[in-house]
Computed example of a mutant assay.
Amino acid sequence: MTRVCLIGNDDVNLQYELLSRETSREALATYDLRRPFENSLAVRTVSVGAAVTLLNDLQWYLTRFVDAALVQEPSISDEEWLSRSLATDLRNGDVEPHETGEFCKVYGLERVDRGETNPSPPETGANVPVDRGAEADGDGDGDGNGGDDSEDSDEADATLRLVEPLYVRRTDGDLPAYDLRDVEETLVVRLTESEYSP
């Protein structure tokens, strides 16, 4: 299944903005909503084409409330995401899957206590669960925290925040190390060449 993840702008509550408006709420109604990161919404679709179509349907909201729209296609990578533009190029046949990995943006993943995150206002009428699936963290253990399993209650009450993206170029199959902050985990987003800004 292809995943779509919307990361909200810093000054909005994305869940509230999307679920309090009839058109966007209806566009998302058939999906199981998840929240893999702070101030995000994620859904699973059947293909890259379906993911791009959903993003096109939500265009009005994306320009106002969304900082980044990401697509994850398992046939390309189980751990790395695609930018919306790259996913669109892939869907249109303008780029081949093996050509998607050169230009990247790497986010640091910072653990924050759920009490520090903005709770969704009660008017939304929806409770979007934190995504604890393996596809949220990329380490395959299904705990959603990107690292070793822990029974610590602080782990269970934490979520992940995307911080300070670093633009990098893959050379000889390797990405440069993320060095903007001291973080244990990172999230890689593949970009089109025009989106890449070193």
Rank of each mutant, 00 (worst) to 15 (best):
T63M: 09
T63Q: 11
R64L: 12
R64C: 10
R64A: 14
A68G: 04
A69F: 03
L70W: 08
V71P: 03
Q72M: 13
E73M: 00
P74W: 08
I76K: 03
I76V: 15
S77C: 07
W81A: 00
L82A: 06
S83C: 12
R84C: 01
R84P: 02
A87C: 15
A87P: 02
D89Q: 14
R91L: 11
N92P: 00
G93Y: 10
G93H: 10
D94C: 03
V95E: 07
E96K: 11
P97A: 08
P97C: 07
H98S: 12
E99Y: 03
T100F: 00
C104E: 01
V106L: 06
G108N: 06
E110L: 13
R111C: 02
G115C: 09
G115W: 11
G115R: 02
G115D: 14
E116Y: 15
N118M: 12
N118R: 12
P119L: 11
P121N: 05
P121A: 12
P122Q: 11
E123D: 12
T124R: 05
V128W: 04
V128F: 03
P129F: 10
D131E: 14
A134K: 09
D137G: 15
D137M: 06
G138N: 07
G138A: 11
D139T: 14
D139H: 13
G144P: 02
G146V: 06
G146A: 13
E151V: 14
D152V: 10
D154P: 00
E155Y: 10
E155M: 10
A156L: 09
A156N: 10
A156H: 07
A158I: 02
T159K: 05
T159H: 04
R161T: 13
R161I: 04
L162T: 01
E164N: 08
E164W: 08
Y167C: 10
R170M: 02
D172N: 15
D174A: 14
L175K: 01
